[in-house]
Computed example of a mutant assay.
Amino acid sequence: MNRLPRDRVQRHLQIDSTLAGRRLDQALATLMPEFSRSRLQQWIDAGQILVDDGPRRSRDKVWGGESVRVQAELEAQGDCLAQAIALNLVYEDEQLLVVDKPAGLVVHPAAGNPDGTLQNALLHHEPALAAVPRAGIVHRLDKDTSGLLVVAKTLQAHNSLVNQLQARAVHREYRALVQGHLVAGGSVDAPIGRHPTQRVKMAVVRNGREAVTHYRILESFASHSLLSVELETGRTHQIRVHMAHIRHALVGDPLYGGRPRPPQGCSPQLRSALQQFPRQALHAIRLGLIHPQSGEAMSWQVPMARDLDALLDLLRSDVGHADPHP
């Protein structure tokens, strides 16, 4: 494992009048969303960000029209080390790469997962990613969600993808196996925030952030449904929370799903498979976006994850399987 080199960020910006009255660090976080607010504060404190050619404090107010010069040293990703972890690359060019992430792989280091993550793998695959925030990771999948994830290889690509995500221009489609028999597709428009008493969970809460999920039925079983799910927003655990909110939690979800509910009269093999499925049955199957450099619309699709595909085969072969929806 090797520690990675540092790079420099040079920008010349002007504070927009719509940001008048806000703190300097807040305004810069709006203008430079590819960098965290804490990193911007560090640069301000170190004198690497000047306003009208002079130093400022993070809490100083801006009033619009100020000239901001950024000449900052972008350090390697803290203590994140390059590690030789296999990657299933679906696409790669000079600006971005697309990964088919397996279930069980954490996206970036955090408490309890200091290494062995996708970010460690990316830094080994492409050392230059040390110069891009979070090694180019602009969105995430939960540890036990499989499927497609895009990574920016340059600051230009990072900025473009962050803007596309904020503009809801990135198309993300999932396959979700949920408990219960739905009769029609629909949408869930319910704000999501931290659970008021269980801090490891998210929940639908009145003062949460806007969250919109669309779903349609692909296949129906005796007491389960296979859904195509599309995200309009991208909140933490969004699909898992929204499906549980409408009382159709994901199969195998240890946090939101409750106890498995095999259909009455099902085979012992299916009962065991449902009870022992080791993760939430969620797979990011399709991804679409605008290429950061060429402006071309691009999309990728991967096969269903093997473990989920095997479970679906069992459901299809068991007694009580309903006809697929058209």
Rank of each mutant, 00 (worst) to 15 (best):
G180Q: 05
A128T: 13
D25Q: 09
M32K: 05
L24C: 03
S160W: 02
Q10I: 04
V251C: 09
E219M: 01
D79C: 07
Q293F: 08
V70R: 00
V51T: 03
R306D: 15
P254H: 13
E296G: 01
H181N: 01
W63I: 11
L122S: 00
L28R: 06
P191Y: 12
A169K: 12
H291A: 11
L148P: 04
Q48V: 08
A176S: 13
H124G: 04
L148A: 10
F221K: 00
W43K: 04
A184L: 10
Q42E: 12
A167H: 04
R199A: 11
K153C: 00
H171F: 03
A111I: 02
G136N: 05
H214N: 15
V9I: 12
N120G: 03
G65Q: 04
G78S: 07
A284V: 12
L40E: 01
N159K: 10
S160Q: 12
E296F: 00
L226R: 02
A305Q: 06
R11D: 12
H12M: 06
R56F: 08
H124E: 04
G186P: 10
G104E: 12
N163I: 01
L129K: 04
A131W: 00
R6K: 14
Q83G: 06
L287I: 06
L274S: 00
V183S: 15
G47H: 04
P260N: 07
D79W: 09
S146F: 12
L74G: 03
L122H: 00
R286N: 02
V9L: 15
R69F: 08
A297K: 13
L315W: 00
Q301L: 03
Y215E: 04
L148G: 07
P260D: 08
Q269A: 15
V170Q: 01
V229D: 00
S187M: 14
N113F: 13
L13G: 07
G78R: 08
G186V: 08
S220T: 09
R259Y: 01
T197F: 05
D253A: 09
G116K: 13
Q301Y: 04
H108D: 07
D79Q: 15
V162L: 05
N159G: 02
D253T: 11
L118N: 01
R306H: 12
L270K: 01
P254G: 14
V212Y: 09
N207T: 10
F35T: 01
V319W: 06
